[in-house]
Amino acid sequence: MTALVLLFIYAPLLLVVVNSFNADRTFGWPPKGFTLEWWGRAFDSEGVREALVNSLWVAVVSTVISLILGTMLAMALQRYKFFGRDVVNLLVILPIALPGIVTGIALNNMFTTILGVSLSMWTVIIAHATFCMVTVFNNVIARLRRMNGRLEEASADLGAGVFTTFRLVTFPQLRSALLAGGLLAFALSFDEIIVTTFTIGAGDTTLPIWILQNLFRPNQAPVVNVVAVVLIVVSIVPIWLAQRLSADSVGISAGRARARAAVK
C-alpha cells in the first residue's frame, strides 16, 4: 500500500520531467523523441529569468528574517517562564496550521486596508516570513530541549558575557538545527503560491505565479514543464539536506548518550 501511494504521488512528477524533454509539443505518449529545445527556450525567456530571480530573492530574505525571529522566539519560550507563554507558543505556530487562503486574505487586508501599503515584493517577503519562521522555531526549540544547560552556566561562571556565551557555546550547538530550519524555510518560500497570490503587486511575479499564468497557454506549455522541473529540484534539495542534517544531529546526540552511559 505504501508503494502504491508513493507511486500515485511521484509518477506525475516523473511525467513532468519526461515531458520537459518530449519533442512532441502536444506531449504524446509514449514520446517519439527527446529534445533540449524547451530547456533552451526557458533559459532564453526574460519572464522566466525575472520570476526565478524574484523567487530566489524572496526566499533568501524571508529565510534570513525567519532565522532571526524564530531563534529569538524559541530561546525566549524555552529559557524563560512568563505569563501567557503558552498563548504566545500557539500564536507562533498557528500561521503554518491555517489554510493558506485564510492567511493570504488576512495579510492582504492588513497591508491594503489597515496599513495602507501598496503590495510589492516586500509584502510577499513579510508574508512568507510569517509561516517560514515556524519551521525555524520548531527546529531550534527542539534542539534547545536536548541541549545541556550546564555548559552555558559554566561559561557564565568563568566570566563570559551573554553574547560571548551565545557565540562560543550556544550557537555551535544550534548550528545544524538553524541550517536545517533555514533550508526548510527556503523551500517553503520558494514554491509558495497561495499566500503569494494575495500579497504580490500587480507588476511583480515569482516562479510559481509565472507557472500559473502560463499553464494553459499552448505556446508556453513545454516551457512550463521545464520551469516545473526546476521548481521541483530547488524544492527537493533543501528538504533532503535538512533531513540529513536532522538525522545526523539526532545520531550524534544518541552517540553521546551511549558514550556517557558506557563511562558510567
Rank of each mutant, 00 (worst) to 15 (best):
K32P: 07
I125D: 02
M121N: 03
G84K: 07
A11M: 14
S45L: 06
L7C: 14
M72K: 05
W122M: 11
F82P: 06
F83R: 15
F21Q: 08
T63I: 06
P99Y: 07
G100T: 00
V60F: 10
A127Y: 05
A74G: 07
W57M: 13
S62F: 09
M110V: 15
T112E: 08
F83A: 14
V117P: 03
A106M: 10
F27R: 06
V18M: 11
D24G: 01
G28S: 13
T71L: 04
I114E: 08
V102D: 08
C132N: 12
R49V: 07
E37C: 02
A23I: 11
M121E: 00
V88S: 08
P95G: 06
I105S: 08
W122Y: 12
A76D: 09
S55A: 02
L69M: 11
P99K: 06
A51F: 02
L67Q: 04
S120P: 10
L91T: 04
T123G: 05
V48Q: 00
I125F: 00
L90P: 00
F43N: 04
W122Q: 10
G70C: 07
F82W: 08
N108H: 12
N89H: 14
F8M: 13
E46A: 12
K32R: 15
I65Q: 01
I105R: 01
E37W: 05
V92N: 10
S62R: 09
L77D: 00
T35F: 02
A129L: 04
L67I: 15
T135M: 14
V102A: 14
P30A: 04
L36S: 11
I114K: 07
T63P: 05
L14W: 10
Q78D: 14
I126E: 01
V53G: 08
L77H: 01
T123D: 03
A11G: 10
F83D: 10
L98H: 02
T63S: 10
L90T: 15
V117S: 03
L56V: 15
K81D: 15
P31Q: 01
L73H: 04
A74S: 12
T63M: 12
T71M: 03
D24C: 03
L73S: 11
A97P: 00
A106H: 07
N54H: 10
I93A: 07
P95Q: 00
I68N: 04
G70W: 02
A129Q: 02
I9M: 12
V134L: 03
C132I: 02
M110A: 12
A129C: 05
W29V: 07
L77R: 00
L36E: 01
W39F: 02
T112A: 08
R41H: 06
E37F: 06
V5C: 11
V5S: 12
A42K: 04
T35A: 03
L91M: 15
R85S: 14
L119H: 07
N108K: 10
A106F: 06
N19H: 13
E50G: 14
V64H: 02
L77A: 02
A76R: 10
L7Q: 03
K81N: 13
I126G: 03
T130Q: 09
L14V: 15
V53P: 05
I114S: 10
T135F: 15
A127C: 05
I126H: 01
D24W: 01
M121A: 10
